[in-house]
Design a protein around this nucleic acid. Structure first.
Lengths: 340, 340
DNA sequence: AACCCTTACGACAACGTTTTCGTGTTGAAA
DNA sequence: TTTCAACACGAAAACGTTGTCGTAAGGGTT
């Protein structure tokens, strides 16, 4: 078991100074061709690699970006991470991923942990609990310390930073409009409670679409799910006797649960009811009937977020560039849960 | 924008030495009650937090464990990560997650990156390409450097280290036995090419189950999928005219594709064909018919891997504990893709 | 012979901590 | 008054790097 070799050890072995070794390895012209070759050969032999921690300390940057997401188990977030990784690696950054599990406390702890030197900046989608509490001190703090922060998907208006979002409102509007165009007369909505920002926006989109088509909004056919864990039963119960011919759900799961409920009632999808969901996950693709859905282009979102962050990280000290909010286009992927 | 405050700055402000500040904050009895209070108050006011990078450098450990997985998009891996996180956080470690995307090169790069100080040890499931190439130099290297390594799921026999696996062979055997007990006479298998270790083991389990029941193994009803991306078509074509009444698939996707193929042929699942898959993901739960499947208990697996790693990390220098291989029990979750 | 310019390298500081080992000031015991 | 422990603090080293600066040796020019 040979521990990692350091500059100092190389220096001692070759009877030169540490500085000489460092310079030789970085091809400094200060060092004679001879010594340079000798040192490089030795370093290669012992597989020398500079210690990142020491470099981080010296340079006061870690070339690392921290990603904090509410829950990794959602396919959407994994695609975002994918996009972040691609861009980050390309530009020589590594990525640390932490999960908040939708807990405010864990979000705070993780941020403080990473903020103490481990990370140069953050990409984050806030926890549900944080949106509920509206306590953003940990966010303002890292910004105040000069660490760039990019928020995506679930963003907070009040915080000034770069943001990457999708146009939840219009995406929903378009989807609901599609249902209307398919001649649906009674379109239900399954959404989340209002404090989840994206849930709220999608609800608004639904309402606007109906209004623009002079359809009155009927609160009886809108369900705001509180508790994700029991949503299947809740949705099942909610859909009894509603006689819908169209339904929009703010995520994949709600949509699937709804379809199941309809099937249980002896209804046919899409013949009797058309259903559109949100988030283009594996489930949407594989389910029978496959689900018409709003695709959020997570990879692109992640890539854009990483690009924004790195741009901030590498901008000159003095130059204060304005914050940007980028909207990623969505697309409606039509499958078999809607009529043709 | 006030940058993070350091010990040195506190020392200067309060006109004491850096050592005094450090000691005061760590409640050393060397420092008088008075000064201690003063320093602590000041530190709190300015929200002092020690710099992790400096600590890592000094202590020569980072309290961080690196996790390298082939693909985050597989639900199974996300559950494993969940388990790792739980245990790690509990014991004061953070977790860095990197994806190899099943590429050998990326696996090597990521390991080298993290091995240079960022990480105290590794938890890893090897990339498909690595298993194929059988080039493990990066693994032996980190072990030689004294960094503990725990492999899970896709492990490599030849490498000496802690391992957490599931009993793929017996899990499959039990599942196939179940099909036999359900009176299936012609049981097909959809598996991966042999160099994927778990694919091989599961294939062996299938063969053994048949042999023990004096059923001859018919290579015509075994499909070894090469290319994941085109597997749906491949499976569809393969199943034509096979007249199976039972099928085992080594993962969730293959199982679902098979069911779809059966349904397309006008067969009924489970009435005409019983299907069992592997990996208890969202798809298995939600699909209609819901899929009978071998659950791998990913969370438990991750938790165990983290426990093993941390145990090694915190064991006394001299004491060389033997390597362990832990087998996580699987369970067969019976749903609607098999007869009762 | 006196001077200066290269060449080739080493010493040292710095990044932020912790910890060991001094050391100056008290107060009390002899 | 001397001696010595207890107390309260500071200096310095160490972790592994990089970069600035200093400098010795050598060779060339007057």
């Amino acid at each position: 078991m040979k521990k990692k070799i350091t500059l100092k050890q190389i220096a001692r072995e070759l009877d030169v100074s540490v500085s000489t070794v460092s310079k030789a390895l970085r091809d400094s012209i200060e060092i004679s061709e001879d010594t340079r070759q000798k040192i490089k050969a030795f370093a290669k032999l012992y597989n020398y690699k500079p210690n990142n921690i020491a470099l981080s300390l010296k340079n006061r940057k870690s070339k690392t970006i921290g990603v904090i997401i509410p829950e990794i188990v959602h396919h959407f977030f994994t695609t975002v991470i994918s996009g972040i990784e691609q861009v980050a690696n390309e530009k020589g950054y590594h990525v640390i991923i932490c999960m908040s599990n939708n807990s405010f406390d864990k979000e705070v702890i993780n941020m403080e942990l990473l903020a103490n030197g481990s990370t140069d900046g953050f990409i984050l989608s806030v926890a549900k609990e944080t949106q509920q509490k509206q306590d953003y001190h940990h966010l303002t703090e890292v910004i105040n310390q000069g660490m760039p922060l990019v928020m995506f998907d679930r963003v907070i208006e009040e915080i000034e930073c770069d943001k990457v979002i999708i146009d939840d409102l219009n995406a929903t509007k378009k989807a609901v409009q599609r249902l209307i165009d398919l001649n649906c007369k009674k379109i239900g909505l399954i959404t989340t409670v209002d404090y989840v920002s994206v849930g709220k926006l999608r609800t608004d989109g639904y309402v606007q679409a109906l209004r623009e088509n002079k359809i009155s909004v009927n609160p009886d056919i809108i369900l705001k799910v509180e508790d994700f864990d029991n949503s299947e039963e809740e949705i099942q119960a909610f859909l009894i006797g509603k006689e819908l011919d169209g339904l929009f759900a703010v995520n994949e799961h709600f949509a699937i649960y709804a379809i199941k409920a309809f099937l249980n009632q002896g209804l046919k999808v899409p013949e009797d009811v058309s259903v559109i969901g949100f988030t283009n996950g594996e489930l949407s693709r594989q389910f029978i009937p496959s689900l018409t859905t709003v695709s959020q282009h997570g990879v692109e979102m992640g890539a854009k977020a990483a690009t924004l962050l790195i741009k901030k990280l590498e901008s000159e000290e003095g130059v204060e560039e304005p914050y940007e909010t980028i909207t990623i286009e969505t697309s409606l992927i039509e499958r078999n849960s809607t009529k043709r």
